[in-house]
Amino acid sequence: MKHTISILVENHAGVLSRISGLFSRRSFNIDSLAVGVTDDPTVSRITIIVNGDEYTVEQVTKQLNKMVDVIKLKQLDSSSDICRELLLIKVRCNAKNRSDLIDIAQLMQAKISDLSSNSFTLELSDTPQRLALMEEMLRPYGILEEVRTGAIALQHGTEVL
């Protein structure tokens, strides 16, 4: 079972290593991790997707909460909250199939971020499920390489952390 945890932490050196160290030493599995500064430059926001049962997630949140650098955290609801990943994907292309690829890009609302005579790089920010769909659509053309960020998430509506 995957759980999304959003964490506000003090933005200073060593915090990320403390957080990731906690996961490895307590044998918690991280599926993805994304970190960036917030509108308050003294605060960073970390989004972690963790895989585990209810007991594990409770332990993860309690152990995270105990860390001196953690200001606040919340487990988000993946069905109602907004969760996004960014994908950059480079596929093989030629003059014959280029228009097919453009169609896929338009259907998926992806951006064409780079183009060459025999490659095509698309950029898509969407839910992990939609990114997987896009990847499937492009696979037959030959994926040269791809990169994804970890998921970032915000709560639905006016709720804030």
Binding site: Y55, E58, Q59, K62, Q63, N65, K66
Partner: peptide, 8 residues
């Protein structure tokens, strides 16, 4: 005093 110990 440590919530993380409860239920661990």
């Amino acid at each position: 005093i440590d919530p993380a110990e409860i239920g661990k």
